[in-house]
Nucleic acid binder design. Structure first.
Lengths: 149, 149
DNA sequence: ATACATGCAAACATTTTGCTTTGGC
DNA sequence: GCCAAAGCAAAATGTTTGCATGTAT
């Protein structure tokens, strides 16, 4: 059984950082673990407190901010648009592509793992508009069943 | 030739407001015109200054904020996720569905009018997850040709 | 006359930065 | 020991609100 995790693990991130002359620290490890175990997109605050439970010491907010920024630059993490005041982040694990379904009323977020209807469009658009290195972000908004009552 | 604009005009918005006991004012008209004539998603600041050019007096920022908020509640306007610090807004004209292609480097936004591959998924998802009243937001990110050089 | 709409200024939330100290290699 | 990372606190940015004033009906 192929282990997809293996291609996107702390190990790998560690190596990636090394190659850039950067370091894998306890704090970064905690932050990454938090993201690995996330049930859905997280705010910086949520990442911070989840990271705190991973290892004893809760990282400073600025540390979380800068680490997530770094991961974003390395394209290991990306923002998710949930139409809220704070940003939410998620791992860019190529083996887990999730789109999101958000309740406009209570804000609940459901991960939907539909066979992504976008992959083909992506190539087409890249060619047509001369863009390269495409990715996309797809969110659905609606009213969930509890809020419909 | 059917006039699609007719179903989504100042007139119509005016009536909609009336029905809610609200008013169509000069300022609101300017703000709406700015949105009608938008070349792409706009920030509140951009809306403010474009509205100022529509009519002589530039509306206060708070007025723009509250007007856009109101239009959002009426579902005439929605936020677009461009992964920037400020929010961008766009008319929810049902006859013009645009998805966006954003350059990760220079931030340029291109409107793409592809035959939307999502409509079908929407119904499916609504049924499967018990959500109603679905809409979606789809953005592509990549590097544009100028930035590739 | 009565609300709704606006402007102005202040409050708030969140993100971002500067600088000092700590710690990985 | 050197340089990156972390912590702390302050600044910057963007959004939201309160209240007094203006204006449409």
């Amino acid at each position: 059984m192929p282990n997809h995790e293996a291609s996107f693990s702390l190990q790998k991130v560690s190596e990636l950082l090394r190659r850039e002359g950067l370091r894998m620290t306890k704090k970064r490890e905690g932050i990454l673990r938090a993201l690995f175990e996330a049930k859905g997109p997280m705010t910086l605050q949520e990442i911070q407190s989840a990271a705190g439970q991973q290892s004893a010491a809760t990282p400073d907010y600025a540390t979380v901010f800068r680490t997530v920024l770094l991961m974003e630059k390395l394209r290991l993490v990306h923002k998710v648009n949930l139409q809220r005041s704070r940003s939410h982040y998620e791992l860019s694990d190529p083996h887990k592509h999730y789109d999101h379904l958000v309740c406009r009323d209570c804000g609940d977020v459901v991960l939907i793992d539909i066979p992504c209807p976008i992959g083909d469009s992506e190539k087409l658009i890249a060619r047509q508009y001369g863009f390269r290195d495409l990715s996309h972000s797809l969110e659905f908004f609606g009213v969930c069943s509890s809020c419909s009552k």
